[in-house]
């Protein structure tokens, strides 16, 4: 690969155009208005131009989110693309903010934009929540009833992030998340 000369005049196109969103809680505004589009990109170079100029997730304020979704999909359950789906949820301990958070978030982004999953057409996007009680990363898929696709994505995710076999991650259907009243989660799938 080192012998191949790079043509820097041509950018590398991505399979999909992606939009990065930022959420900050302003109680004077609706939740939807607090979700703001930052930028969209459809080449590798434009992705790095954006990523290299924004704060890493670990530097964000408590209560904020980054979301990366295919263009046209809003980072919310109510969007038509998301409403029948769910998310693989990675819950981090507080100490992991310094060790693992940025690495996990970047690796997930690279899986998304590089179409690493066999069932990448089922991928909607990913969200990282920065929270005092522990950060979370969710990988959102379109259809919770497509068990084989959901499981393939979950297994590859665990593999790419080098999550130890003894650690289980769960997939939560958005509808269940919406309906839940307590803090316990109902996982429809596990890896």
């Amino acid at each position: 690969n080192e012998n191949i000369s790079m043509d820097y005049s041509i950018k590398h196109p991505l399979q999909n155009c992606w939009t990065l969103w930022y959420y900050e809680n302003d109680r004077n505004q609706s939740w939807e208005k607090n979700q703001r589009e930052i930028a969209s990109f459809e080449t590798i170079e434009d992705f790095w131009s954006l990523y290299n100029h924004i704060k890493p997730a670990s530097d964000l304020k408590q209560g904020t989110d980054y979301s990366l979704f295919k263009k046209g999909i809003r980072p919310m359950w109510e969007d038509d693309a998301n409403k029948r789906g769910g998310r693989w949820l990675i819950s981090l301990e507080k100490k992991q903010r310094n060790n693992d958070l940025d690495r996990y978030w970047l690796d997930i982004i690279l899986c998304l934009i590089g179409e690493a999953f066999d069932n990448s057409e089922d991928i909607c996007g990913a969200v990282v929540n920065i929270r005092y009680k522990g950060d979370k990363i969710g990988v959102w898929t379109a259809d919770a009833t497509k068990g084989a696709a959901v499981m393939e994505i979950g297994k590859k995710l665990k593999d790419r992030l080098h999550i130890p076999p003894r650690v289980t991650i769960g997939y939560e259907i958005h509808k269940d998340t919406m309906d839940k009243t307590g803090s316990s989660s109902r996982y429809s799938y596990n890896v």
């Binding site: 790079m6 590398h12 991505l14 590798i44 899986c111």
Partner: peptide, 18 residues
């Protein structure tokens, strides 16, 4: 159909591309 797939290292190697 076909899709454009990029490996992790390939993406990382372009991080500092001009």
């Amino acid at each position: 159909g076909t899709k454009i797939v990029y490996e992790r290292n390939f993406l990382l190697n372009l991080r500092n591309s001009p």
